[in-house]
Nucleic acid binder design. Sequence first.
DNA 1: GAGGATGGTCAGGGAACCTTACTATTCCTC
DNA 2: GAGGAATAGTAAGGTTCCCTGACCATCCTC
Lengths: 144, 144
Amino acid sequence: MDEPAQNTGLLLFYPYRAMETRVLAVLAEAGHEVTLAQARLLQRVAPGGSRLTDLAAQAQVTKQSAGSLVDQLEARGYVERVPDPRDGRARLIRPARRGLEAAALAAPVVAAVEAEWTAHLGEETMATLRAALTRLREITDPWA
Amino acid sequence: MDEPAQNTGLLLFYPYRAMETRVLAVLAEAGHEVTLAQARLLQRVAPGGSRLTDLAAQAQVTKQSAGSLVDQLEARGYVERVPDPRDGRARLIRPARRGLEAAALAAPVVAAVEAEWTAHLGEETMATLRAALTRLREITDPWA
DNA sequence: GAGGATGGTCAGGGAACCTTACTATTCCTC
DNA sequence: GAGGAATAGTAAGGTTCCCTGACCATCCTC
């Protein structure tokens, strides 16, 4: 409404979205048809596999929503579902071939954007920023 | 996929969403039925009025989407549309009574959350964080 | 004053996400 | 162990969000 742009929440938002946009643009260029919502979930799939419920909690959507997104990602070869050997009710969602390709493509983009930020802020400030954000996560990420 | 949580983009996201969630929860408690998408737009309405096209650009949605959200906000008394005296095509979207109430309610929540963050990080680090984010905005907010 | 740019709306459709309800499996307790 | 509670996930149906494409009105420029 009139938070004069100094609202810290909003300040966090701009670079976050810039990063997201950049990564998604590169993926799209390379022929990866991944929607924003799918990418947000995909990003959280652990290399060794994640449970649907965990993914839903981290992305803060219902497990139904997460389930639907995983369906789509699975159909396009980004992830696969395998039974969880330690719990018969559960299934593990693991990165599949296409998902690994996308991750390999995304990593250098993230690095490039971070390098740009470092160039703009200076090494020291960038390091402080990252340290502050990491500590902030302790109290703002219920899932940390 | 496996960015080990040290992706700066993701680090920015956690506190951003924490702030958003807190503010929205207070608004909901106070009887404001504002959806996330509506709030994101509402937040950007300038006290003196904003054009739809500007709001859409800032929120990075199409003007059609923005127009629809403004319709909803207008119907519930959060904003009003008035003709732009300086441009016959345009109309200014201004905060209305309910919107001002919501803003008055949101401001102390933002302040409280920022105070919590300051308490966790320390005055100095918090100041550095805000300064860094402000400078980062120069290169990440196409609208700055 | 014609042509192009800009501000905004209308129509239609797809994606995302929610609530409620359900099955299957596991954990816990007595 | 044998209930019952909790947990992992799916199913169905509806709302919200947001997009593309097409269109009208007004402004600006030459």
